[in-house]
Amino acid sequence: MEFQELDPILHSQLRLAVVSLLISVREAEFTFLKEKTNATAGNLSVQINKLKDAGYLDVTKQFNNNYPQTICKITKKGIEAFEDYVKALQTYMNPNGQ
């Protein structure tokens, strides 16, 4: 079995954590992702933008009671990329395909 290349967009600790969280929920607010990943707001914001630029996330900015709110949702492309990433990981963890 050949080793598949790991998607560089997902093969980063924080971006992978964000996508893994969003794969299990319908949508999540920025503060939820920050709380669960223990990342700094600045770093998280940069990584979310990278995922958004890759077409993996839909990011909606809105106001709630005059406070800005950022809502993130995984896209179909993001789900497919995540599934491919997991399949690729399996080739590394189980190279004989057993």
């Binding site: 893994s20 299990s24 990981l89």
Partner: peptide, 28 residues
Amino acid sequence: MTTKNENLSPTDSMQLINSMINQAKNNF
């Protein structure tokens, strides 16, 4: 959590995915 990927082994990646999915799942 950082954005480093040099030291992220396949096992680390799998553990991270599992831990994040569980965190989201246990959010009651």
